[in-house]
Design a protein around this nucleic acid. Structure first.
Lengths: 157, 157
DNA sequence: CCTCCTACCGAACGATCGTTAGGCTGTTCA
DNA sequence: TGAACAGCCTAACGATCGTTCGGTAGGAGG
């Protein structure tokens, strides 16, 4: 398809970028929606990380745009997309908060730092994941490091 | 300064990008060079994370270019920059390997996953750090989460 | 005072980009 | 059969971008 033919389907470049990012935002939220509500918080964290990495690997191009190009949106649309992103981050933060409040995680856990570390691993993945790669094992490895750390073998309750 | 005036100092846009990235690459390697050789691996990991985040906050613009724009380099220069980046990543990986081999870290530690998690936190920082922000506390918080995990209180030896 | 030299200005070039509009082809349905 | 329509092509537009180049203001040194 030639570049001019695009304009039979979209209103313009901005519109195309915005639609693409909406698809991305909705996909990430949908992944969180499908977490089992009754599972322990740590298990939901593990599954959330799996879902996030799977989404990035399955739709690497959308994920890359979603992470890198939100600056190019005009002010109004950028605010909307950023709000969706902040809402996603808050949902992740809530998982860690629940884990702490339910005593699955240490009571002095800094949920902001924890969520930021989770999101760093999740969002950086677009730079090294290959399209379509199976990511569950990687997600579980990350989860293990995050939750149990790198020292010793124990998993104290 | 007008855009045309730039060309009294540089050969072209590619050259400017390349020089900027060289500055960035050298700065990151220099930070690792200054780690205390005789300190325990975990301590060097902590200091490396501190140094990385400090560099990102101090030179946020260079760090952003370094992370986001290497794709725009022509093949030859991109390869050179990517080689430097891989060398940096390998130096980080070596820290975790030393930590494991010196029994500071668990003997079944996956040094690749550990380094990737470290680098995710470090490289993603350009998206949320404010220029000039003091980052030592954040780095130590990340380090604590990475090394000791999020469960329990103990730090088994 | 005159002469370099440095550093920047500002107009202009070709190339590329986003966008428009008119035309062509093949399919659908009366 | 033929009209309507969907989907893509192609040429062309204005705007922007990277780059060049002649000019100029101001300071340094003789």
């Amino acid at each position: 398809m030639q570049k001019g033919s695009l304009y039979a389907h979209i209103a313009g470049k901005q519109e195309l970028l915005y639609e693409t990012m909406l698809v991305g935002a909705r996909a990430f939220h949908a992944a969180l929606d499908e977490l089992p509500e009754r599972a322990p918080a740590t298990e939901r964290i593990r599954l959330a990380l799996r879902a996030h990495l799977r989404l990035v690997a399955d739709q690497l191009d959308v994920a890359t745009v979603f992470v890198r190009e939100w600056r190019s949106l005009d002010a109004e649309r950028r605010d909307e997309i950023l709000a969706e992103r902040r809402r996603y981050e808050e949902r992740i933060r809530a998982l860690f908060r629940e884990g702490r409040e339910g005593s699955e995680l240490r009571t002095d856990l800094d949920e902001n730092a924890a969520a930021l570390l989770f999101l760093s691993a999740a969002n950086w993945a677009y730079t090294w994941l290959h399209p379509g790669e199976d990511t569950d094992a990687v997600a579980d490895a990350f989860f293990g490091l995050l939750v149990d750390g790198m020292r010793g073998y124990d998993t104290p309750v």
